[in-house]
Amino acid sequence: VTLFVALYDYEARTEDDLSFHKGEKFQILNSSEGDWWEARSLTTGETGYIPSNYAAPV
């Protein structure tokens, strides 16, 4: 399992994006889409796309 942590807060701009807060942890589901990764929040259980430059490996 690849775990990442949010470096900044992010507010979803589309219904496919995932809103999150700094410090929140994610499981990365798909990182082959370039700058946007499909991720599941370990806090909320929700799935959506996150900007890859807002996350770092745990």
Rank of each mutant, 00 (worst) to 15 (best):
W36I: 07
D9R: 04
L42G: 03
T14M: 10
S31D: 12
T47F: 08
G45T: 03
S41G: 03
Q27L: 15
I50H: 00
T44F: 01
D9S: 08
I50C: 02
D9Y: 04
Q27R: 07
R40Y: 12
V5G: 01
V1K: 12
A39W: 01
R13A: 11
L18A: 01
D35F: 12
S41N: 14
A55K: 02
L3T: 09
D16R: 15
V5M: 08
A55R: 01
N30C: 11
N30F: 08
A6H: 01
W36F: 10
N53H: 13
Y10F: 09
E33L: 14
V58H: 08
W37E: 01
T43C: 12
D16S: 15
V1F: 14
T47Q: 10
A55W: 05
T43Y: 09
T43K: 12
W37P: 00
N53Y: 12
E46P: 01
D16K: 15
D16Y: 15
T14Q: 11
R13D: 07
I50A: 00
P57F: 06
S41C: 06
Y10E: 00
F26C: 04
L3K: 04
A56F: 08
S41F: 04
E33N: 15
W36L: 07
L18D: 00
F20K: 00
G34R: 12
T2E: 12
S31A: 14
Y54P: 02
T14L: 09
P57Y: 06
Y54W: 07
W37T: 03
G48R: 01
A55N: 02
A12H: 05
H21C: 12
S32H: 11
T43Q: 09
D35Y: 12
N30R: 07
G34W: 08
S32E: 11
S19A: 07
L18N: 00
N53S: 14
D9L: 03
F20E: 02
I28D: 00
I28P: 03
K25H: 13
N30T: 08
Y49A: 05
T2R: 13
A56G: 08
D35K: 09
H21M: 12
P57E: 08
F26L: 12
F26G: 02
T47E: 08
T44V: 00
F20A: 01
T47N: 05
Y54L: 11
V1I: 13
V5K: 04
L42F: 07
K25N: 07
Y8F: 12
L42Q: 07
W37M: 08
W36V: 07
Q27A: 10
A55Y: 04
E24V: 03
N53R: 11
R40T: 14
V5H: 05
G48D: 01
K25W: 14
G23L: 02
F20S: 02
T43F: 08
Y8M: 09
L3I: 15
I28L: 07
N30D: 13
I28Q: 01
G34K: 13
A12Y: 01
F4W: 15
D9C: 09
D16A: 14
Y54K: 04
P57N: 05
A39E: 02
Y49D: 01
T44W: 02
L42E: 09
W36C: 07
L3N: 05
R13I: 11
F26M: 06
G34Q: 11
I50Q: 00
V1E: 13
S19T: 10
A6G: 04
S41I: 09
Y10D: 00
L29A: 05
K25C: 12
P51H: 07
N30E: 08
V5D: 01
P51Y: 07
N53W: 15
Y8W: 11
K22I: 09
S52G: 08
Y49F: 13
P51F: 06
G45N: 08
P57T: 05
D17H: 15
A39Y: 02
W37F: 08
E11I: 14
A56V: 14
A6T: 04
D17M: 14
A55Q: 04
Q27W: 15
H21F: 13
P57G: 05
T47Y: 09
G34P: 14
I28N: 00
H21V: 14
W36A: 05
G34S: 13
E24S: 04
L3Q: 07
T44L: 02
L29M: 09
L18K: 02
G45H: 06
G45A: 04
G48A: 03
D16P: 03
Y49Q: 09
D9K: 04
D16T: 14
K22Q: 09
Y8I: 07
E46I: 11
D9Q: 05
D17E: 15
G23W: 04
G48K: 02
Q27M: 13
D16H: 15
R13Y: 07
T2M: 14
P51M: 06
A6K: 00
L42D: 04
F4R: 02
L42P: 03
K25G: 05
T47W: 09
E15G: 13
S19L: 02
D17R: 15
G34A: 13
A56H: 08
Y10L: 03
K25R: 12
K25P: 06
E11W: 09
V1P: 13
R40I: 14
V58W: 13
S32V: 11
G45Q: 08
K22Y: 05
V5F: 09
D16G: 15
S41M: 08
S19R: 04
A55F: 15
D17Y: 14
D35C: 11
D17F: 15
Q27P: 00
N53Q: 11
K22V: 10
E11V: 14
L7G: 01
T44N: 06
A56I: 12
Y49T: 07
F20T: 02
S52R: 11
E15P: 14
S19M: 03
P51L: 07
A6S: 04
S32R: 11
Y10K: 01
R40D: 02
F26T: 00
V1M: 13
T47S: 09
T14F: 15
Y54Q: 04
T47M: 09
F20L: 05
N30H: 08
Y54C: 09
L42R: 00
L29Y: 07
S32M: 13
S41W: 02
A12G: 12
S32D: 12
L3R: 04
T2W: 13
W36M: 12
A39R: 00
N30L: 06
G48M: 02
L42W: 07
K22W: 04
P51R: 06
